[in-house]
Write a protein that binds this DNA or RNA. Structure first.
Lengths: 340, 340
DNA sequence: ACCGGTTTCGAAACCGGTTTCGATAAAATA
DNA sequence: TATTTTATCGAAACCGGTTTCGAAACCGGT
C-alpha cells in the first residue's frame, strides 16, 4: 500500500507543502481558490493524512485505553459499547485490554497503554493493589477515570459508580416485603468493595426490619456460576435451607438455581432467589430471575464523557463522582405464592 | 505528561541521539559499554520510545482492525479474545469496530481503519454489499482476512470458516436418529450465506433419510430471541406443531422454547429443540439446549495467524481457507424419551 | 510615483525517532 | 614504521505532517 502524502500533492500542483497543510487546516493565510484546488486534487489523488505524523506533531494520540478485569460477563461488553458510542463521535479510538482479574496483568496493561501514549484511561480494577501507582499517574496530570471497581481510598479523579449498598438494600427489602423470614446472602469475595457494599446493604435491610442477622446466613461464595453451584450443594447437604437467597450477582444466583432444581426443589416455592447486575440470562432462565439492573450503557457513556472532560481541560478540572441509578427487575424467582 | 525522548538522554550523557537510537536497536556499531550506559540511564530517566515517531519511520503501525457485524451475542466477543491472544503476543494492537449489521457502517469502519493505516483487517461481513471494494483493497496489497461471514464469490485472500452445511446436517441427523419424523427448521435471513448453508444441511439430511421436505417445514425466522418467539407463537396458533425444530441459532431456539413453555408444552416430550452456535445460555436454560458449538477462540486465533502471515510476507503469500471443526453438544432438549 | 497595510505564499524548523555515510581513532597487518 | 582494516561515533537526511516568520505581491489612498 502506497499512501499519498501532502508532498505528492504539492508536487502535482507545483506549490509548497506548507500551503497544502494550510488548506486542510482551514488557515486564514491561503486564498480560497487555491484551497479548493488543493482539496479537490487531494481528493482525486486519494489522499488521507498520515495519523502518525499528526500525532507526532500535536502530541495527542486521539486514543484512549479501557482496562477491564474480565470478559466473561456481558457487563463490561455493554459498558464498552457505551464508551465507544461517545468516543468514536469525538474521533477517538479505544484500545481494550483485559486484566483477567490479575493486578499484575492490570499494571502491565496500564503501562503498555501509557507507553503507547493514550490520552487517558478508563479503568475498572481487579484489586486495590496498584492504586498508589495510578495515583501517581493522576498527579502527573494523566487522565484516568474509574468505574464499577473503584479505589476505596480517596483518589483525585473522576469516578462512575453504582450504589451497590442501596440496591442490595432494596433487593433484600423486596424479599422481606414478600414476607420471607429466613433469608441468606451469597456474598462475593470479601476483598472486593462491591461485595462488601452489597453485603452491607443486605445486613442493614434485615436490621431495619428487625430480622436478626445470623452469621451463618452470609456465605462467601464467589462470582461464578460454579461458585453458586458449589455453595448451594453444601447448603443442601447441611439441611439448613433458607426461604430466600440474595446473591451477590446473577451467575451465583443461577448456579444456586441449577442445583436447587437438580435436587427437585421448586423456585420460588421452596427457595426464592434474587440476583444482581442484570444479565441476559436472568429473564431467559426458568423461572426468570429477579435481579438488579445496572445502566451499563450509561455507565460507559458517563465514564467516556468524564474522561473527555479531563483530557480537554488540560490540567484544571474538578474531579466528579457520578452515582448512577439502577432498577430492580422483579420476576418469578422471588415472588411469594399464596398457596404452598 | 512530559515524556522523555532520546534527545533528553543524549543531552544527559553528552552524546548524539544517533548513538542512543543505536543502543536500543542493538546495532553493531556501538560499544557495548556505552550501550549499557545508555540503556541504564534511559531506564533511570523513565524513557519509553514514542510509538508515533517509530510508526512514522518504519511505515508500519503494529495495529490491526477487527470489524464485526454485531456485539449482541457472545460469539464475536469470544473470537475477539482469540485474536487478542495471538496479536498481543506479537506486539499488535487491535482496533475493534462494530458495523451493527449495516454494510454502509461497515464500509465506513473499514475506511476509518485504512486511513488510520492499520497493517491489516480481520472482517466478518454484514452483507455481500462491499465485496468489490474489499477485493480492490486486497489487489492493492492490503491484507484482509475474512471469517464467519465471508464473501460468497471467489476472493483472493485467506478465510476462516465453519462448515455450517456439515454441522447443520449432523444436527438434523441427530434429530432423525432420535426417531423424530416431523422436523421443522427455523431458518435465518435468506440473504446470509450461513443461513443458506444451514438450511441446505437441514434439507439434505432429511433427503438422505428419505424424509420428504415440506416447504411449510422451513420457516424464515431471524437471528434474535424475539424472532424465535414471534414465529413460534404463529406456529402454535396455526396448530401445526412439529415434533422437533432445528433452529438457525441459539437465540431463535431459545425464543421458541420460551413460547412453548409459556403455552404449557413440554420440551423435549412435545417438541424437541436443537440450536446452533453454542451460547452460554444453552446449558443454563431449562431444559438445557442441544447445540452446535463453534470453536470461537480457535477461529480468532487462526484468523489472527493468517493475517500475520499476510502482513509479514509482504506481497507473496498463498491465500488459505481454513475450515474448523465443531462439536454437537447433545443435551436434554433434543432427546427422545421412551415414554410419552 | 510613493507609501502603509493586507493578503498570500514558501523556506525552514520542529515533532522523535531511524539510517546512511563520513570522520576519527584504535587495532591489525605488512 | 607505514599502511590497511576495523570499531565507534556524530552530523545530517528522512518519515509526513504543523507552525513560524519573512518575503513578495497586491491593494487603495495620497
Amino acid at each position: 500500500m502506497k499512501y499519498v502524502t501532502i508532498i505528492d500533492i504539492a508536487k502535482a500542483l507545483n506549490i509548497s507543502k506548507s500551503s497544502v497543510s494550510k488548506a486542510f487546516n482551514n488557515r486564514s493565510d491561503i486564498k480560497s481558490d487555491t484551497r479548493e484546488l488543493i482539496l479537490r486534487t487531494a481528493k482525486e489523488m486519494g489522499y488521507s493524512p498520515n495519523p502518525f505524523a499528526k500525532r507526532l506533531m500535536n502530541q495527542c494520540s486521539f486514543q484512549i485505553g479501557l482496562v477491564v478485569p474480565e470478559f466473561i460477563n456481558a457487563f463490561f461488553h455493554e459498558v464498552m459499547i457505551g464508551i465507544q458510542e461517545v468516543m468514536f463521535e469525538k474521533g477517538y479510538q479505544i484500545l481494550i485490554m483485559n486484566s483477567n482479574e490479575s493486578s499484575e496483568k492490570e499494571l502491565e496493561n496500564v503501562k503498555t497503554l501509557t507507553s503507547n501514549m493514550v490520552d487517558g484511561i478508563i479503568l475498572s480494577m481487579a484489586s486495590q493493589e496498584n492504586v498508589a501507582y495510578y495515583s501517581s499517574l493522576i498527579d502527573k496530570g494523566f487522565p484516568i477515570v474509574f468505574f464499577n471497581r473503584i479505589p476505596t481510598k480517596q483518589i483525585n479523579t473522576s469516578k462512575v459508580l453504582f450504589d451497590d449498598y442501596k440496591w442490595a438494600f432494596f433487593a433484600t427489602e423486596h424479599l422481606i416485603y414478600q414476607s420471607f423470614k429466613k433469608i441468606f446472602h451469597f456474598a462475593g469475595p470479601s476483598s472486593m468493595a462491591i461485595s462488601k457494599q452489597r453485603k452491607l446493604g443486605f445486613i442493614d435491610a434485615l436490621k431495619k426490619h428487625k430480622i436478626s442477622v445470623d452469621e451463618k446466613s452470609i456465605i462467601e461464595t464467589g462470582l461464578l456460576i460454579s461458585d453458586g453451584q458449589r455453595e448451594m450443594e453444601k447448603l443442601i447437604n447441611s439441611g439448613n435451607l433458607p426461604e430466600a437467597i440474595f446473591a451477590v450477582n446473577d451467575p451465583a444466583a443461577i448456579g444456586a438455581m441449577k442445583i436447587l432444581k437438580k435436587h427437585g426443589y421448586k423456585i420460588p416455592e421452596d427457595v426464592a432467589l434474587v440476583g444482581f447486575t442484570e444479565s441476559k440470562l436472568a429473564e431467559l432462565i426458568d423461572p426468570p430471575l429477579t435481579s438488579v439492573a445496572q445502566p451499563t450503557n450509561e455507565i460507559g457513556r458517563t465514564a467516556a464523557k468524564l474522561l473527555l472532560e479531563q483530557i480537554e481541560s488540560k490540567g484544571i478540572f474538578v474531579p466528579q463522582t457520578v452515582i448512577l441509578n439502577g432498577q430492580l427487575n422483579v420476576r418469578e424467582s422471588s415472588i411469594k405464592l399464596n398457596e404452598k
